[in-house]
Design a protein around this nucleic acid. Structure first.
Length: 426
RNA sequence: GGAAGAAUGGCAGAGCUGGUUUAAUGCACCGGUCUUGAAAACCGGCGUGGGUAACACCACCGGGGGUUCGAAUCCCUCUUCUUCCGCCA
């Protein structure tokens, strides 16, 4: 969530940022309401504090009077405190209501975009940050989309998934399952080699965690919810990994904090439809290796580019054609200040598929989760959080199968062979 | 699942028969004196948040609620941890 101090002190800047994010008029008007409500909060708090101060003093005097045996005088003061208490209770309620109202308004505001974020509303407005210069792979006649390849080589059964659970829960088999395991290990090894600390977190989190990274309340309907225990199935490892540092004050020497983790990810994908959902393109459960970093604000944008480079390296090793987009204000997530999307070219489908999203959240998540650090001058400041997929499996498998298909089978890229133990799916 | 005990500032650890505790003390940490330098010793500082120009002031002793003029301290409740019993991959 945005910092109240920033909203107060840099209102114009906030306003123009929100416009880049394509906020509606209602959201823009919130700024003045927030400042007004915050003024209200301050004055209510001051009044309340004064009453509490008075009440504390009287209680002390009463104690002293009782000790000296002056009960009569003490009882007079007791009456005064009783009257104060009524007022305190009412102001306290007022203050609570005030804070709730303030919270509810601030939480509706998205993060401010970085200055490099292009204006725009639709995916077409995204900027191609780095295109694919080499020629696109040419597939032999008769090449198939991945869902047909999966069937042909008996790698993935979508049908069995429906039997077991429902659509969007594929069953991987034989070399298909082996390929999953190979990719997971490959991505984890690459991340660890790049200095990321490997973590295996729980796959369910509580409300506080989901709130801290911004999934609640924004994406309430997109997560699977176990009502009886009030747990949420994680939509990404970002949630548990980042939350490891919820409500923490770091020392400057603790930076950089680099974490990686493999987890299945669960998404309800309510409201999705059409060709997008065919095969592996959009699933309710998929595997992903996430990289997460907690950084000093000075470094966070250098680190973002470092993460982009890491993901780039992975795609190169998998020999997949890809491009990098800098997302426009309207296509960026609610929490992000700057996001680079990676897309691989799905030759058989004739379109780009998003396989990774690397973002800097600046202090937006840190503010919600109270993740801070001590600066050199001893001041406590909010840290920056970043994360990215490195990588998400399902769509990688889709493009891997499609782009590397040959008349004699599907070729496994050299970097992956030590992990699969085979070089061809036939 | 059952029983008992516990939860205090970075750590350790008092307070818990309610009012000089506005949380003692030690360690760690920061600054200074001394020293050629370091250690030791001594002096000072040392939690988080709100609030202020800066003070003042206010809140926080696992979370929430209650009793009282006054709660770290008493009561209720939830959570977590420890030990014991039961069950179990």
């Amino acid at each position: 969530m945005l910092e109240i101090g920033v909203i107060r002190d840099q209102k114009e800047k906030v306003l123009s940022g929100l416009k880049t994010k394509n906020c509606n008029q209602e959201q823009l008007e919130l700024l003045d309401k927030i400042i007004q409500e915050d003024d209200n909060r301050k004055s209510t708090q001051t009044n309340l504090d004064n009453l509490l101060s008075r009440s504390n003093k009287l209680a002390g005097e009463i104690g002293a009077l009782f000790k000296s045996g002056n009960a009569e005088q003490a009882n007079v003061l007791k009456d005064e405190v009783a009257a104060l208490k009524e007022e305190i209770k009412s102001l306290d309620n007022q203050l609570k209501a005030c804070k709730d109202a303030l919270d509810e308004m601030i939480i509706q505001l998205p993060n401010l975009p970085h200055e490099s974020v292009p204006q725009g509303k639709k995916p077409e407005d995204n900027e191609v940050f780095k295109g694919w210069d080499a020629p696109m792979p040419e597939l032999a006649p008769g090449s198939l989309p991945h869902w047909e390849l999966a069937e042909k080589y008996d790698l993935i059964s979508f049908k069995d998934g429906v039997t077991l659970t429902g659509s969007g829960f594929p069953v991987y088999k034989g070399k298909g399952a082996r390929l999953q395991r190979a990719l997971i290990n490959f991505f984890l090894d690459e991340a660890v080699a790049a200095g990321y600390h490997e973590i295996q977190p729980p796959l369910m989190v509580n409300k506080e965690s989901a709130r801290a990274t911004g999934q609640l309340p924004d994406k309430e309907g997109q997560m699977y919810h176990c009502e009886k225990d009030d747990f949420y199935l994680i939509p990404t490892a970002e949630v548990p990994l980042t939350n490891l540092y919820r409500d923490t004050i770091l020392q400057k020497a603790d930076f950089p904090i680099k974490m990686t983790g493999y987890t299945p990810c669960f998404r309800r994908e309510a409201g999705s439809y059409g060709a997008d959902v065919k095969g592996l393109n959009r699933l309710h459960q998929f595997d992903k290796i996430e990289i997460v970093r907690l950084e000093h604000p000075e470094n966070s944008y250098d680190v973002l580019m470092e993460m982009v480079a890491h993901v780039e390296g992975l795609l190169q090793k998998l020999e997949l054609p890809f491009r990098i987009l800098r997302l426009c204000g309207g296509d960026m997530s609610f929490n992000s200040a700057l996001t680079f999307d990676f897309e691989t070219w799905s030759a058989a489908q004739g379109r780009w598929l998003e396989v990774s999203s690397v973002s800097n959240f600046e202090t937006f998540q840190a503010n919600r989760m109270k993740l801070r650090f001590k600066d050199e001058d001893g001041k406590t400041r909010l840290a920056h959080t970043l994360n990215g997929s490195a990588l998400a499996l399902a769509r990688i498998v889709a493009t891997l199968l499609e782009n590397h298909q040959t008349p004699i089978g599907i070729r496994i890229p050299a970097a992956l062979i030590p992990y699969t133990g085979f070089d061809l799916i036939s």
